[in-house]
Design a binder for these strands. Structure first.
Lengths: 198, 198
DNA sequence: GTCTATATAAGGATAGAC
DNA sequence: GTCTATCCTTATATAGAC
């Protein structure tokens, strides 16, 4: 029996393994060579399916964004405010687990590609949060501002939790729980009217 | 007149240029080779002053942490709460300008070195924020929790501002201003009692 | 579609000359 | 203390065989 591997769909395998690779080494550590190694093919093989490194990474990013949107959508909660706070925690948990968040969609190298699928997936993920925010903030502008604040908060907790600023920690809660707590405070705070761009 | 450059203190020059290099290409883009090039010396020269790449980066990180502490200390404001909110904005402005924030102190590669100066500089920077927080939160635990939340928020705004999630932006304010606004909301929110680690 | 082999480039690090 | 020269590793990407 041959040790040779027949890939029915190497492209799909590469995206699957790519998500796992990013989860392990982060976006910075992503490399076509390492990905090929894990998929059990030569370093040249991926280039038959994706023109270059960035297009392959964009495909991985699209998959990640879709999984993120699905996670956010599944977040439970008793009322809209609770769901939104919990979704912030879900976001942190997702980034902790997957090594990357929504910022991959806006990575300069990938933006340059103008990938439609990627842009759409990124927008879909944000739309989940915006939908929840609209239920706790009357105006559309206030809802967007709140989402911006919560995403910043979540992104920060995800980064700090990973690198370990938590040497300063004062509780035994994990990063997602602490992010949820902070989100609750922010959601509960009285909204200031944002300036609308003229 | 000789084109030859005599460095009275190459070590100091390397740290100076290292800060500028990190500001330009980020921590990920930091390289001894590029730094040597900018200092006008061979790629071997830095290794006479710093054992390896990480020790050189640690020296740069220490300098960055000290500059950050100085920036935070200089933040003006009418009262403690206003100063703390403004300091959050200052942090975002610093990271935008210097390409890195307090997380460099906790980078795994550098933590492994156990560099005393670096650890001290990092703690000093955080102590500025903790000092301000203690003026707006009665308990030490609540103050630490608030600092954690504000640093997460600042870190998130700095990252998103850089990568451009601001495609979603609804105001014409810059990232530091928006971070200050969010910080104000968080500081104004009623503190929840944090769990103390047993 | 996949492989082998190769061109090209960058970086970390060391040995030994000066 | 600094340079030149070199080695080793890693990665992107392509050409041509199978």
């Amino acid at each position: 029996m041959s040790r040779r591997y027949h890939h029915g769909d190497l492209a799909a395998t590469l995206v699957d393994e790519g998500v796992a690779l990013v989860a392990e080494v982060g976006v910075a550590g992503f490399s076509v060579a390492e990905l090929a190694r894990r998929a059990g093919v030569s370093t040249a093989a991926p280039y038959r399916h994706f023109g270059d490194r960035d297009r392959l990474l964009a495909a991985v990013a699209t998959r990640v964004a879709r999984e993120l949107a699905a996670c956010l959508e599944d977040t439970p909660g008793e009322d809209p405010a609770a769901r939104l706070a919990a979704a912030t925690g879900t976001y942190v948990a997702f980034v902790t687990r997957c090594g990357v968040g929504i910022e991959i969609v806006y990575a300069p190298a990938l933006r340059r590609l103008g990938d439609e699928d990627l842009a759409h997936a990124g927008r879909a993920a944000m739309d989940v949060l915006i939908g929840l925010a609209r239920e706790v903030r009357p105006s559309a502008d206030a809802a967007l501002l709140l989402v911006e604040q919560l995403v910043a908060l979540a992104h920060g907790y995800a980064s700090l939790g990973a690198t370990g600023l938590t040497a300063e920690r004062i509780t035994d809660e994990d990063a997602p729980t602490r992010a949820t707590r902070a989100a609750r405070a922010l959601i509960g705070a009285a909204p200031e009217a944002p300036l609308v761009v003229g």
